[in-house]
Design a protein around this nucleic acid. Structure first.
Length: 150
DNA sequence: GCCAACGTTGGC
DNA sequence: GCCAACGTTGGC
């Protein structure tokens, strides 16, 4: 099983939103690297850290799991939507997503600051300066080290 | 709100 | 194929 971290801006979609909905399509990813992780790396049942970005206290706030295989993101076909991509066709869709299922909220936010302070987590893309990847793999060791901080 | 870092686009 | 310009991300 693989482990992942997915970022969301809580103003747009928070861990509480996921808790309320139960399952949600992770739409709007428009970055090839992130797409490739969802398409090629994710399997149903993989565990996901839910991360709040671009907010007062950025950090990991919950756990989710991958609920579907990757499938085409419908937003790319909607000319009126903000995720429309004129270069993508139904025969050959450019963007995919997976559904993500709520597992639990952490007891507290494990902040970015704490993660940056852990020597064992220094290799994570998340803590590297300027990183903008919104979907990234986490090693099993990193997963355990992060959970131990809770 | 600022701005550094990054990915993408498009002219050449 | 290079690279400048541009738009976006995301911490602060």
């Amino acid at each position: 099983m693989n482990h992942w971290l997915m970022k969301s801006e809580p103003d747009a979609f928070s861990v509480d939103d996921l808790k309320r909905k139960g399952v949600e399509p992770w739409d709007g990813v428009r970055n090839y690297q992130a797409r490739n992780f969802m398409r090629d790396g994710m399997r149903i049942g993989d565990k996901v850290f839910f991360y709040h970005s671009n907010c007062a206290e950025p950090g990991i706030v919950g756990i989710a799991e991958v609920a579907t295989d990757a499938y085409p993101d419908p937003g790319q076909f909607n000319p009126k939507g903000k995720y429309f991509d004129a270069a993508s066709t139904r025969d050959n869709p450019r963007w995919v997503l997976v559904d993500v299922k709520f597992v639990k909220k952490l007891k507290r936010t494990i902040t970015l600051k704490e993660l940056q302070a852990q020597p064992s987590l220094a290799e994570m893309a998340l803590v590297r300066k300027g990183n903008r990847l919104s979907v990234m793999p986490i090693t099993a060791q990193e997963w355990s080290a992060i959970l131990a901080l809770e």
